[in-house]
Amino acid sequence: MSEIKKFMFVNRKAPHGTIYALESLEVVLITAAFDQDVSLVFLDDGVYQLKKGQQTKGIETKNFSSAYRALEGYDIEKLYVEKESLELRGISEEDLLVDVTVLGRAEMGELMDQQDVILSF
């Protein structure tokens, strides 16, 4: 498959309360295997997916947060977080478990406009 498209995955939902974050991560990993240009965006409650120190033992669910650290190994290095989404939730870049690029609202909008395929779950 020679055609390379710009895929953006927009994550707007918090983890654990619903399965969306986990299953969306599964698509991201597959898409990377197709050698596409992959970006991940964390917006609104989606930023909670990247919160450090998640411990799911007590709720008996899979702690998939470590998988975000593994993304680099799949050549997925474009992780974007919207600045206001962090601010509105009282958290900062230091609270996140991976390195991300923090974008203002306009920059985020521009990035979205540059994509070929936008998937949201």
């Binding site: 917006l43 609104d44 919207e82 909008g109 979205m112």
Partner: peptide
Amino acid sequence: NCSLDSCLRVAQ
């Protein structure tokens, strides 16, 4: 839900 609000905030 804030989806419309977020869209208006972020989208070009």
